[in-house]
């Protein structure tokens, strides 16, 4: 029996090691590459651990943003356009993702409450249509939205992207929040109602404060969902005023010619930091959120 147990553990850890290598290895290689000198990157066989650790790639991005075109990196190449605008695009992405999560949780909470707590005609139709929204291919919506945005002078603006991203995030948020509201005992609400609170007051003064953990979790998920959005960012943005980090990262990746590979890689690593940190810190909440969102439908 003991030998069997040992055999089982060996098998489990062997399998774990294989899966870890496959799923984390590529990511670690990206991080490791970003700290290497360009000439190390091109070595065969590859240098697995940067030695010495070089922060040149990150310096190009940060200094390039500050000094503009005058910054020349150690390779003698002046910093590329992409490197100079990258930090700004990163900031744009942050503004978009934070606004999307704030407003979609705010709007989503008010929409979720009646679904969770009240009976009304058309409730299931409402719930169903909210779910169907998630199935519509973004490309089908992109054509009319881009035409509208151009006609109304709304292209190349962050606010347009915030608004569009909410359409992907809201169905998710509403679904998660109505499930969360159902877990709050209705006695608390009844007590408030007897004291003469209106539905609006009950929601603001009782339900929302009690749902804070659920609101935060949903907000984080909303952030993760909108942070990596690419298609609409590509179509709506035109200048560095509104480029998002995914757009600039794609510009890096599809660029040809004389480029600093390390800078491209560093840009990729930077773009991954916010979502990966969120995912690792809040993994328990995210997992339960993702599961309740998907399993129930």
């Amino acid at each position: 029996m003991k030998r069997n147990k040992l055999k089982r553990y060996i098998l489990i850890y062997l399998a774990s090691a294989v899966f870890l290598t496959v799923f984390i290895g590529p990511f670690l290689w990206l991080v490791s590459s970003s700290f290497q000198m360009e000439n190390q990157l091109f070595k065969v066989p590859p240098v697995w651990f940067p030695n010495p650790v070089s922060t040149e790639s990150y310096r190009e991005i940060f200094m390039g943003a500050i000094y503009d075109e005058s910054y020349v990196s150690v390779y003698g190449k002046s910093s590329s356009y992409q490197a100079r605008i990258y930090l700004r695009s990163f900031l744009n992405s942050l503004i978009i993702a934070l606004s999307v999560s704030f407003f979609s949780v705010l709007f989503g909470a008010y929409a979720a409450y009646p679904i969770a707590r009240m009976d009304f005609k058309g409730k299931y139709f409402l719930l169903f249509s909210i779910l169907v929204v998630r199935l519509v291919p973004a490309l089908a919506l992109a054509i009319p939205i881009v035409l509208f945005a151009k006609k109304m002078g709304m292209n190349d603006r962050l606010i347009t992207l915030i608004f569009i991203n909410m359409s992907f995030v809201l169905p998710y948020v509403i679904w998660l929040l109505q499930a969360y509201f159902k877990t709050i005992p209705s006695e608390l609400e009844d007590a408030g109602r007897i004291d003469g609170c209106s539905r609006f007051q009950v929601l603001n003064k009782i339900i929302l404060p009690l749902s804070l953990p659920g609101l935060v979790t949903t907000g984080i998920l909303a952030f993760l969902l909108s942070w990596g959005e690419f298609l609409f960012a590509l179509l709506i943005t035109e200048t560095e005023k509104s480029f998002t980090s995914t757009v600039v990262a794609a510009m890096f990746a599809t660029m040809v010619g004389d480029i600093n590979y390390v800078t491209i890689i560093a840009a990729g690593v930077l773009a991954v930091i916010p979502p990966v940190l969120f995912a690792l810190f809040f993994q328990k909440y995210i997992m339960s959120g993702l599961l309740s969102g998907a399993v129930k439908n």
Binding site: F23, F27, G228, T246, P275, A279, L280
Partner: peptide, 18 residues
């Protein structure tokens, strides 16, 4: 295992291109 999930599609593509 959540790491690959959290990586934006564009960065995932950039990673594999590299």
């Amino acid at each position: 295992l959540l790491i690959p999930w959290a990586i934006p599609d564009v960065v995932n593509a950039l990673l594999w291109k590299w």
